[in-house]
Amino acid sequence: MKRVHCNLEFCVNCHLCEVYCTLAHSPYNDLVAAFKGGAHPEPARLFVEERRPASFAVQCRHCDDPYCVTSCLTGALYKEESSGRVLYLQGKCIGCGTCLVACPYGAIKRRMKPDGHFTIVKCDLCPDRTRPACVEACPNLALKYEEREQMNP
């Protein structure tokens, strides 16, 4: 399946992938509104980690045999057979954080919902777009959305 691959050599640590991820998952079409329109902007589904000079965008690898799905206590996380994406059901997730511990990439984060309960955030590969927003936003072609034999970047 097609995955987002980050080229460590050319990631410029701009974090624009995070910015545009937030926009893609927000109810607004405008960046300023996406960040300032509501009380809490949507968190980005991928995270740029840095240890200068290198930086790297970390996101769900949508593993073939995902540990997060196996570990999920409530069955909220599942692997969609048709697309290969690893997704989760908002209603079932209790925000326990077991998947965070199980994920070998650290690609899942936890956040508090407006109602005070916890839930997870993770990459969904932008199902409504032909290419994920982060890949489109990358100014240096460090992020690529393509099929590769090796799953890891």
Binding site: V12, N13, C14, H15, L16, E18, V19, V32, F35
Partner: peptide
């Protein structure tokens, strides 16, 4: 300040 979303891209670039 109205438009700045404090993404800190400027700081890093």
């Amino acid at each position: 300040k109205e438009r700045c979303i404090e993404c800190k891209t400027c700081v890093r670039q």
